[in-house]
Design a protein around this nucleic acid. Structure first.
Lengths: 344, 344
DNA sequence: GTGAAAGCGCTAACAG
DNA sequence: CTGTTAGCGCTTTCAC
């Protein structure tokens, strides 16, 4: 019972029904014209022999699969796992099988995954993060495989994302309104450099508009993508920041996960949020909304991002046309919660 | 530039290198013996024409893929998304491509995904949840496709999970030690009925050992898999529970996400955790460890679950043997944090 | 309406 | 050591 014969093929069905291969194929695909009588017989035979079409063979002869790849930077980050889930839903509903791949944020791991997708002849790829492997992206393009980057802007590719700069500007303006003048900017390896740059631009822009000088020492990017609150190094870095003459009274953080970690760290250092220090994040993951966490943050419209991203790949796949570039930038919204307060 | 010729095949490489198909195939697979000179020429040709092996064609002729499916109940639940990530890592490292599918916990959606995997001739399946679709599971078995259920016990299948009953027993004993006598048990649709039953058993067992009578009205299963704290109905249910003559002083919850939601709800109702009510969860997701949340919970060893689960499928795939059943039950550990306290 | 035949791109004997 | 050959399971003209 552990090694049964090979699974039944279309030929087995044909024999069982006393018709030819092509007739079976026709009724399966609903193509051509088949008399009701034959159809019934074929359907019966399919059930009898327990036939299940072989997608591999079909793909080979059709020279196209119905598989689309989803590349995720970090499935453990709820923002991405939820996006992935939404995109998977949408694509599955449209009749595609999805291969979700986790890249760990490493470029090499990303290239490997894309190569695997290419070998499996994926018909399209949705990237929930893109480290900028341009040679590969170009290859995709050259082979006519649509790729759309979701949640971060890419100059030369289809993409749908949020206006990062505008989001941060909103957040920083909120802090400024609360009287903060020394506002630190913290980002992490969890955020693509490109996205980080855009968010940082928003930060500088907001400061400039308010006539607050930009101080480089208040800007730190922490590359270690691990959880920070358990990271001694990170704690020291934060302490250093807080010991500076121009001690920041607020932190703009480029990602909720890191923002929450920062709150954690600050509280370990004996500071209260928001009484002593305000913190604002970016993404608005479910977690941020918990009363216990209550993080003020910039919300990304996840459903829209997923919906639009999926729609674009599907359209590209459908029409086979990769032009013109489709680039969407959605408006983020500030969600004010309990991690920000009037400056002390 | 948008519609280029079909991707190069092995034949293109052969022609370019002036050898036969099989020689190219040999160097690609490292099979047979090939002179260094020819190999060089072939390698050069591969690079020149930009050849990428077609996994579809290979799978067809080999009559086996290197694809393994991962079924997840809810990617938005960090416990599962992290498990999925770990399993994917492990399988990818072993040279397999993974198709991660989200089932939303629906049995029909689960069946659809499995059917798709079957059509794509997956060589193995890791189920991070299993609603008990036995007909399909049997079909997998009949076709010799290994399937291992991770994180919940399945009588008739390979599985690796935690000793749910023991975990809950640990937790409830902890509550009893703190002086609690009226301990409610709350579970949700997020947890498979089977798993829930095991956990409930642990609850009853612990009560019995302590000579505390089991009161059915203190046990509630909330089927709605949505976030609870925004659910008016749920709030009413909790209020009802707390209004009962034998008002519970502690809650054993079968899942961290729900436990956190419950804390939220309790606090909305004006109760303090743990001063007025203690709460303990199950899973130990990252979130539970945040100082702001600080949930006492039963930890599942995720890395081990993922590691063992992956190892089992890989071995099954390797040996082609589905016997004997491999069923592992790991020991959970209680992590005491700040959501439990001496009864008031 | 239905069947026969020619592959899709590749692997795996088997000859040379 | 290299080339020839026969398919893998299916779709898709094109005759009958």
């Amino acid at each position: 019972m552990s090694g049964e014969g090979r699974p039944p093929t279309i030929l087995d069905v044909a024999r069982h029904a006393g018709v030819s291969k092509s007739t079976v194929s026709n009724v399966i695909r609903g193509a051509g014209k088949t008399s009701d009588a034959t159809r019934e017989r074929v359907l019966g035979a399919i059930a009898d022999v327990g036939y299940r079409p072989n997608a591999i063979a079909r793909s080979l002869v059709r020279r196209r699969t119905t598989t689309v790849g989803i590349l995720v930077g970090d499935l453990a980050n709820p923002f991405y796992s939820e996006l992935a889930k939404l995109v998977e839903q949408r694509l599955t509903a449209a009749g595609y099988a999805t291969m979700i791949c986790n890249t760990d944020g490493h470029a090499t791991s990303e290239r490997l995954r894309i190569e695997s997708l290419l070998e499996h002849r994926a018909t399209g790829i949705v990237m929930l993060q893109f480290s900028g492997e341009w040679p590969l992206a170009d290859e995709l393009h050259a082979q006519g495989i649509p790729m759309v980057v979701v949640s971060c802007w890419e100059e030369a590719s289809d993409c749908v994302c949020v206006d990062d700069a505008a989001g941060v500007r909103l957040a920083v303006e909120h802090l400024i309104e609360l009287g903060h003048r020394r506002i630190a900017y913290l980002s992490s390896g969890l955020v693509e450099p490109k996205t980080d740059r855009a968010r940082n631009d928003g930060y500088r822009h907001a400061l400039r508009s308010a006539g607050i000088p930009y101080e480089p020492e208040l800007v730190v990017r922490w590359e270690e993508p691990a959880y920070l609150s358990s990271d001694r190094q990170f704690m020291l870095e934060v302490e250093r920041l807080l010991a500076a003459p121009a001690r920041p009274t607020a932190f703009m953080v480029s990602n909720d996960l890191v923002a929450i970690d920062l709150m954690e760290t600050l509280e370990q250092l004996g500071l209260r949020v928001p009484a002593d220090v305000s913190v604002v994040g970016f993404d608005d993951i479910a977690l941020a909304g918990l009363a216990r966490v209550s993080l003020t943050t910039v919300a990304q419209p996840r459903e829209q991002l997923a919906e639009l991203g999926s729609t674009i790949v599907l359209e590209r796949i459908d029409t086979g046309d990769l032009h013109p570039l489709r680039q969407l930038r959605l408006e983020p919204a500030l969600v004010v919660r309990g991690s920000t307060a009037q400056v002390a």
